[in-house]
Design a protein around this nucleic acid. Structure first.
Length: 269
DNA sequence: ATTCTCACCTGTTAGC
DNA sequence: TGCTAACAGGTGAGAA
């Protein structure tokens, strides 16, 4: 599932391959996206000038001055293809001027977002917490403060920290040796320091590896990410912990499948 | 204000 | 084997 490193990889690909290209025609646009934003009909003729990322959101700045907000959610993909074979999950297909390739927004589960930025979309962006790649231990300490909620729920909350999802939360907690159910307020300063460092390190490493392909994720050219082989706990149930050899377990925390090592991530309350 | 639960979707998998 | 139910997970609306 696309989290910060996967979205960052897509944005880099878009800046390399799509920035500067104009939309020659809208080959296909799905009804459910038009229903969300009627103005998507007027994509034609505008030019992509630059792509950026905020949390897991993608922002496309257009030459007209308008901006598009894209979100891949669970299964969204942005793909560049030469002669795309029509897939029933393609919801937007854009023909680019002076290019043989088409830009495709494919999304099996239809949770993805593709709409012009207006007051409502801007508000959603403004509500996001600090970028997870940049989070400092001082910031984290302030945010955790007196909260009794489990650290895993906190780290998944985009309004607290933006960019982490289920995979990288589990990996960050493992690296900093913190049990996912630990109440935020019970986490020591030393642990907060380890956690902030772990989050930054893991996200940066995963960006270097162009993300994790577990299921369907790929970059704009269809290339899978290479971080899957570096995962220490996510999807590793039953495997031996690399640090203490205990068996990695999978439970449910904050409604999500949660992986951790019972040997080196002890719960304190 | 904060935090929790559920709906949104559909392909895949577990269980009978 | 074939069916159904549960599951996967990011987000926001509404409830507690």
């Amino acid at each position: 599932m696309p989290e910060l490193p996967e979205v960052e990889t897509v944005v880099r690909g878009l800046n390399q391959e799509v920035a500067g290209f104009s939309i020659k025609s809208v080959t296909h646009i799905a009804a459910h996206l038009l229903k969300r934003d009627r103005r998507l009909k007027n994509l034609k003729g505008d030019t992509f000038s630059h792509f950026s990322r905020r949390g897991k959101f993608i922002i496309a700045e257009m030459e007209s001055g308008r901006r598009l907000l894209l979100h891949l959610r669970m299964s969204g993909q942005l793909l560049l293809e030469e002669r795309p074979r029509r897939d029933k999950h393609d919801h937007i297909v854009l023909s680019l001027a002076n290019s043989t390739r088409k830009l495709i927004f494919r999304d099996v589960r239809k949770f993805g977002v593709f709409e012009w930025i207006d007051g409502e979309q801007q508000k959603a962006l403004d509500r996001l917490g600090p970028e997870a790649t940049e989070v400092t231990s001082a910031e984290l300490r302030t945010l955790l403060h007196l909260s009794a909620r489990p650290i895993k729920a906190f780290l998944l909350d985009q309004h607290k920290i933006a960019g982490l999802g289920n995979i990288y939360v589990d990996e960050s907690l493992y690296r900093s040796r913190i049990h996912p159910l630990t109440p935020c307020r019970s986490i020591s300063n030393a642990e907060i320091g380890r956690l902030a460092r772990a989050i930054r390190y893991i996200l940066r490493t995963a960006i270097d590896k162009m993300g994790t392909t577990f299921d369907s994720y790929s970059g704009v050219n269809g290339n899978p990410g290479e971080y899957a082989s570096y995962l220490r706990v996510y999807g590793q149930r039953g495997e031996k912990c690399a640090r203490c050899s205990a068996e990695i377990v999978r439970t449910r925390v904050a409604g999500r499948g949660t992986h951790y090592c019972p040997g080196c991530q002890k719960l304190k309350t």
